[in-house]
Design a protein around this nucleic acid. Structure first.
Length: 272
DNA sequence: AGTACGCCCTGGCCGC
DNA sequence: TGCGGCCAGGGCGTAC
């Protein structure tokens, strides 16, 4: 499940390969991919011939800047972006739903087993407005004060962390891991957090996202980097999917509950 | 506004 | 071996 760190790792892998390269041709073979906007044919035609000026990340989205238009790719739960050298010529399997053929005979393949991901085009000037995502947690603007403002809500803190319109890029894994590091129970009302808890959570969010990037992501199920390699962060998870196992800090068995329809993991002793 | 639920989709796993 | 049922959850739509 690609969240901010996984998307960032892939972005870094791809940026040095696609920026400045021209998209020769695009093949989209799964109509669901473009359901949000346009059709496969229209996206294919609009992309062909354009060069990638920049590749950035916004929350969990890739944004390929092509000039007038930008190509947005969201990986959903099981999406993968795989870079293939021309001479490898890997046959696309039944889960490869799009291929971007670049100058220099290289291919960027989009695979997605569950087809929750999407590909669409936006006018570059409208990307921010239409994606309407919250603050980037790794940017300087994500201060304790900013988090305090986000927390002015009666909702529980964990579902709030997952709200992409408030903070962009945090998913189920990193939400649980950040709350553990901050010593905060996922069921706490956001508005009940004290100033020092807000500060701890702001630090924990940044720390856990940076650690995720440093270890090249969490390969829970299908996550792979642009070269098909899994990340190494899972063994460093402290609570996510560790229910029943002893807390790394105090030994209390990690508990699992459902919160906002999501599996939620925490230490009942360390998180208050 | 918050919260709950169903849906999209597939593969993995469990019990029988 | 095989099949039904359940689970994983990102994001969206709908209902209360």
């Amino acid at each position: 499940m690609p969240e901010l760190p996984e998307v960032e790792v892939i972005r870094q892998d791809l940026a040095r390969r696609v920026v400045g390269r021209r998209i020769r041709r695009v093949e989209i073979t799964e109509p669901r991919l473009t359901r949000r906007r346009g059709t496969p044919r229209r996206v294919e035609m609009a992309l062909a011939g354009h060069s990638v000026k920049a590749l950035r990340r916004r929350g969990k989205c890739f944004v390929f800047n092509l000039g007038q238009d930008s190509l947005v790719i969201r990986l959903g739960m099981t999406g993968q972006l795989l870079w293939r050298q021309g001479d490898e010529d890997v046959r696309p399997d039944r889960h490869t739903h799009a291929r971007f053929l670049f100058s220099g005979n290289n291919v960027l393949a989009y695979r997605d087993i569950r087809k929750f991901g999407e590909i669409f085009l936006l006018p570059t000037k409208d990307v921010e407005r239409i994606l309407s995502l919250g603050v980037e947690p790794l940017e300087a603007s994500f201060t304790p004060e900013m988090l305090r403002r986000v927390c002015g809500s009666s909702s529980k803190i964990k579902p709030l962390l997952l709200d992409q319109a408030k903070i962009a890029g945090i998913g189920n894994i990193y939400a649980d891991e950040a709350l553990f590091r901050a010593g905060i129970r996922p069921t706490r009302r956001a508005s009940s957090l004290r100033a020092e808890e807000i500060r701890a959570l702001q630090r924990a969010i940044r720390a856990v996202l940076l650690a995720g990037i440093r270890h090249r992501g969490s390969s829970i199920s299908d996550y792979r980097d642009a070269d098909g390699q899994p990340g190494r962060f899972v063994p460093l998870h402290r609570v996510y999917r560790r229910h029943g196992k002893p807390c790394v800090r105090c030994g209390t068995p990690i508990r699992r509950i459902i919160l906002g329809q999501r599996g939620t993991h925490f230490c009942p002793t360390c998180q208050r």
